[in-house]
């Protein structure tokens, strides 16, 4: 136990790295084309959450119901810009699992920086890895780390 005490942070770090490196199983569905008709208005996308499987070909047709809006997909660096009556369209292959924010890329009003949607590609590995990492942190603190007191532990 004393040896473990001396090595606890090293072991904790190794386990944390292992957790981050673990693969998260993804749905094994045949890739297909997914078409989403997204309507943008101040300050929301409708639908706000797009769910696809890894490998799907994603088509987003962006329409605006009020002012000029953009739709920028974080992580994929693709963008559509729609004016009222003039829709735009982007096509890309969702080949990276995870959750990516859709952001309005054209200043459209006060809450523009917070006009956000989400693209979910398969299972989000970071959500699971983050949860596992936090759980490991709690476990480490419960059973291995020396407590933080005024004297900094014994």
């Amino acid at each position: 136990m004393r040896n473990f005490g001396e090595w606890r942070w090293g072991i904790g770090l190794v386990v944390a790295v292992l957790v981050l490196g673990l693969p998260v199983p993804q749905p094994q569905a045949e890739p297909q084309e997914r078409v989403f008709r997204v309507t943008a208005r101040q300050f929301a996308f409708e639908p706000a959450v797009l769910q696809v499987n890894p490998g799907d070909r994603v088509v987003i047709e962006l329409r605006s119901s009020d002012v000029v809006h953009g739709l920028y997909v974080e992580g994929y660096d693709v963008e559509a810009v729609a004016e009222p009556g003039q829709p735009d369209r982007i096509v890309f292959v969702a080949d990276r699992p995870g959750t990516y924010r859709l952001r309005c890329s054209v200043t459209c009003g006060d809450l523009h920086p917070f006009m956000v949607g989400k693209l979910r590609v398969g299972r989000n590995p970071w959500l699971w890895k983050g949860a596992a990492l936090a759980l490991w942190g709690v476990t480490l603190a419960l059973f291995a780390a020396r407590p933080r007191t005024r004297e900094g532990g014994r």
């Binding site: 936090a134 942190g137 480490l140 603190a141 780390a145 020396r146 407590p147």
Partner: peptide, 10 residues
Amino acid sequence: ALGSVRTARG
């Protein structure tokens, strides 16, 4: 999370 639980132990 680690810091909070560790502080709670302290």
